[in-house]
Amino acid sequence: MTGTDLVPLDTNKTIAELARRHRAAGGVGLQVLNMIGGRAENLLERLPDPVKLGLESATERALTVALHAAKQSRGVVPDQKGWLNTALTTAMGAVGGAGGLPTALAELPVTTTVLLRTIQGIAAEYGFDANDPDMLADCMTVFASAGPLEDDDGANMAFLTTRVTLTGTAVHGIMKSVAPRLATVLGQKLAAQTVPILGAAAGAATNYAFTSYYQEMAHVHFGLRRLARDSGQPETLLVEELRRAIKSEKSR
Score class of each variant (00 low, 15 high):
G100Q: 03
P102D: 03
P102E: 04
E107S: 09
E107I: 12
E107A: 13
V110K: 11
T111W: 02
T112D: 02
V114Q: 10
L116D: 03
T118P: 00
I119S: 06
I119E: 07
G121Q: 04
G121F: 07
I122G: 08
I122Q: 05
A123L: 07
A124N: 12
Y126A: 04
Y126D: 09
G127S: 08
F128Q: 04
A130L: 02
D132A: 10
P133R: 07
P133K: 08
D134K: 12
M135A: 05
A137S: 12
C139F: 04
T141S: 10
V142E: 07
F143I: 05
F143Q: 04
F143E: 02
A144C: 01
A144E: 13
S145K: 08
A146N: 13
A146W: 04
G147N: 12
P148L: 05
E150G: 01
E150I: 14
D152T: 10
D152L: 02
D152K: 02
D153A: 14
D153I: 09
G154K: 05
M157Y: 12
M157C: 05
A158D: 14
A158K: 13
F159N: 07
L160Y: 05
L160D: 01
T162R: 15
R163I: 03
R163G: 07
R163P: 01
T165E: 15
L166A: 08
G168R: 09
G168P: 06
T169M: 05
V171R: 12
V171E: 13
V171Q: 10
G173R: 11
I174E: 03
M175H: 14
S177Y: 07
V178D: 03
A179E: 02
A179T: 02
P180K: 12
P180C: 09
R181Y: 00
R181W: 00
R181I: 01
R181Q: 10
L182T: 04
V185K: 08
K189M: 11
L190D: 02
Q193C: 14
Q193Y: 00
V195W: 00
V195F: 03
P196A: 04
P196Q: 08
G199K: 14
G199I: 00
G199T: 03
A201Q: 14
A204F: 09
A205S: 15
A205L: 13
Y208W: 06
A209L: 10
A209G: 09
F210K: 11
T211M: 15
S212I: 06
S212A: 14
Y213G: 09
Y213A: 08
